[in-house]
């Protein structure tokens, strides 16, 4: 469904991503792993069209989308949940969700229908509907941004570090949710530093290091390969794990 080939991204003089190839098939949950600064988030942002200095090919269902603006890419069916979460703090939860459904604003009833579905999936958002998003806790905000992304009814969800900075119990909850989304048939590309959790649920995984893909394979294989963990996840040896 998604095929990325020869992706390069530069921030000024610094090359953050140097020739990444990856593929996500329909219905898969693919994990993109790696240490801090390996270029994972940059890869996701580049797929979403949010970075100017990118080169390479990105295809969705066989159609090239790398030349498109971020707003057009959303219309093609890719929704992004950035690492920085980026809730609109001054807007209410409901307004945040309404913007999430922006691409379907001309379809009558689409917003209400999708809103109901998300409220059922994330009951806490129903309670908080009229609160400013900035007043929500970290875990609630994470649920809001995921729900907001789903409001556009994406084919493919790009999830960047959904567990970052959250309490262990909430992390558990978020991962359970990702599992359910995957079961409902949604295709997901997940960036995580929490490799154990991600690999437990993913079908396949890519490991990035220094801007390139260092390893790829079925999630179980990657998980079994302890060498990789020592090298790329930092793990016990370097203590760089989040």
């Amino acid at each position: 469904m998604l095929r990325v080939s020869g992706l390069h991204v530069r921030y000024g003089p610094i090359a953050a991503v140097k020739g990444v190839d990856l593929e996500v098939r329909r219905g898969e949950l693919v994990a993109l792993l790696g240490a801090n600064g390996a270029g994972k988030s940059t890869t996701l942002l580049a797929i979403a069209g949010a970075l100017a200095g990118r080169q390479g090919r990105v295809e969705l269902d066989g159609e090239a989308i790398h030349g498109l603006t971020p707003e057009r890419i959303v219309r093609r069916g890719i929704a992004m949940v950035p690492e920085t979460r980026d809730v609109f703090a001054d807007l209410t939860v409901l307004e945040n969700l309404r913007l999430g459904g922006f691409v379907h604003r001309r379809t009558p009833g689409a917003f209400e229908e999708e809103l109901e579905r998300q409220m059922d999936l994330f009951p806490i958002l129903r309670e908080r509907a009229h609160q400013a998003a900035g007043t929500l806790s970290g875990g609630e905000q994470q649920q809001l941004v995921i729900a907001r992304a789903l409001m556009s009814r994406p084919k493919l969800l790009l999830l960047d570090e959904p567990s970052l900075g959250l309490a262990p119990l909430i992390v558990e909850h978020i991962f359970a949710l990702i599992g359910r989304l995957r079961e409902s048939g949604l295709t997901i590309l997940l960036v995580e530093q929490n490799a154990a959790q991600a690999l437990a649920r993913a079908d396949r995984a890519y490991v990035m290091a220094l801007g390139t893909i260092a390893a790829a394979g079925p999630a179980a294989e990657i998980a079994a390969n302890t060498d990789l963990e020592a090298i790329y996840f930092g793990g016990k040896a370097r203590g760089a794990r989040a």
């Binding site: 949010a50 707003e71 959303v74 980026d86 609109f88 001054d90 913007l99 999430g100 992304a149």
Partner: peptide, 22 residues
């Protein structure tokens, strides 16, 4: 919706675009 998008863009322009708002 346009008004909400304007307010959103005032705080997070890029994120607003990533939700499909031109």
């Amino acid at each position: 919706v346009l008004g909400i998008a304007l307010r959103a863009a005032a705080s997070q322009f890029r994120m607003t675009r990533m939700l499909g708002v031109p």
